Simulated scan of single mutants.
Amino acid sequence: MKIAILDDYQNVALTFGDWNSLAAEIEVFTEAFSGPEEVVRRLAGFDAVVAMRERTRFPAEVFDRLPRLKLLVSTGPRNAAIDLEAAARHGVVVSATGYLGPPAAELTWALILAAARNLPAEFRSVREGGWQVGVGTMLHGKTLGVLGLGRLGAETARIGRAFGMEPIAWSPNLTAGKAAEHGATAVTKDELFARSDVLSIHLVLSDRSRGLVGARELALMKPDSILVNTSRGPIVEEADLVDALRRKVIGCAALDVHDIEPLPSDHPLRTLDNAVLTPHIGYVSRETYEIFYRDAVEDIAAFQAGSPVRVLS
């Protein structure tokens, strides 16, 4: 068996998991592929592929052109970048791995604190020989808006209470009782945007959530508010967000996710001093990678033994 490990940006995949236990030839790709044509060209000779989250897309057109592919391992429990129906039509088994939620919630708070206390500029000033350059904002007593009160949203709200914030929340099916279970108050969508000093997004990307936050919603927000997105880039209309930041409609955006990843080097978000940006590292922790690659090895071994595990359908 010939195995490809994709999008290993830090070149650490082989240090996690017992890869030597597999009877296989393994090749690691550390750079992102440019699109479907490169995916097909680079992976044509592989029997199995280990995909890191949704960094590489596997639509029907890719499966059509990879007849040798028999196993696709997706790190994490779901992967919207894989066309599961197309995989099934081509006889490709798609297996998943375990996942850890806390690292993403922790990064959410790293971004909130970085934005509230102007940390990127302060870091830069000290490194360049300077000293204080801005005035931060206290979180205690402020209102934390949570857009999507699922597992990660609820954890974000819990941490917000520890900071002395008042959590409010909205999602399409959220009830007052469910919000109260997590120490939050259910509000209308418009109220969420209007009242929040910090608004954190925790929705799964779907047809219903794509573009949910646009110019109208941003215009409802306070001029010194902070918008945080550690979920998926397309939930926010990117052009509207860039415009809002340029015109100071909101105070700051702290983003770990983007429409195009890796973020193009000439992207306008990179030029804005009120945008705090990280390269989609919410799940990138040693503990998470240990689970990803340990389980990936187990998935491959089980497939080789004729008994696939953690199969997505």
Rank of each mutant, 00 (worst) to 15 (best):
G130P: 13
V242K: 08
A162E: 08
N274I: 10
F163H: 09
G130Y: 15
E37C: 09
T278M: 14
R127T: 13
P120Y: 06
A80C: 05
F29V: 13
F292D: 02
E61F: 06
F163E: 07
P223I: 00
A254E: 01
D259L: 05
D256F: 11
L245A: 12
R53V: 12
I159P: 07
R195V: 11
V198L: 08
I82C: 02
G153V: 02
L100H: 04
A96F: 00
G136C: 10
L192S: 01
G164M: 12
R210E: 13
P308S: 05
A180G: 14
S200Y: 02
A275I: 10
M221Y: 15
R53H: 12
K142L: 00
V73L: 00
A296N: 11
E261G: 01
C252Y: 13
K2E: 15
N274Y: 11
D273I: 01
Y9K: 10
H140L: 01
D207T: 15
H182V: 06
A32Q: 09
G183R: 14
R117M: 06
A157S: 02
A24D: 08
E25Y: 06
H182N: 15
P59S: 09
V133K: 03
L205M: 13
G214I: 12
S231L: 00
T15H: 12
Y289F: 14
S265K: 11
E237M: 02
V242T: 14
K189W: 08
P268F: 09
V93A: 13
E85L: 03
P102M: 04
L269C: 08
G134V: 02
D273H: 01
T230G: 02
V297A: 05
I250A: 04
W131Y: 14
A51Q: 12
N118A: 07
G160I: 00
K222V: 01
R151Y: 10
F292V: 06
E85K: 12
K70S: 04
A104S: 05
T188L: 08
G17M: 14
E37V: 12
V276D: 13
A23I: 10
N229P: 04
N20R: 11
T188K: 12
A253N: 04
E217P: 03
Y293A: 03
I26D: 13
T185H: 05
V135C: 09
G211P: 12
A121I: 04
N173R: 14
E261Q: 04
A157W: 00
D240R: 03
P268T: 05
V187R: 10
V40Y: 07
A88K: 13
N173L: 11
L255I: 06
V93P: 08
L212C: 11
V94W: 03
R216V: 14
L139R: 11
R247P: 00
A176P: 07
L149Q: 01
R232I: 09
A186D: 07
V228I: 14
T15S: 15
L199Y: 03
N11A: 15
E287W: 06
D197I: 06
G91Y: 10
V126Q: 06
G306D: 02
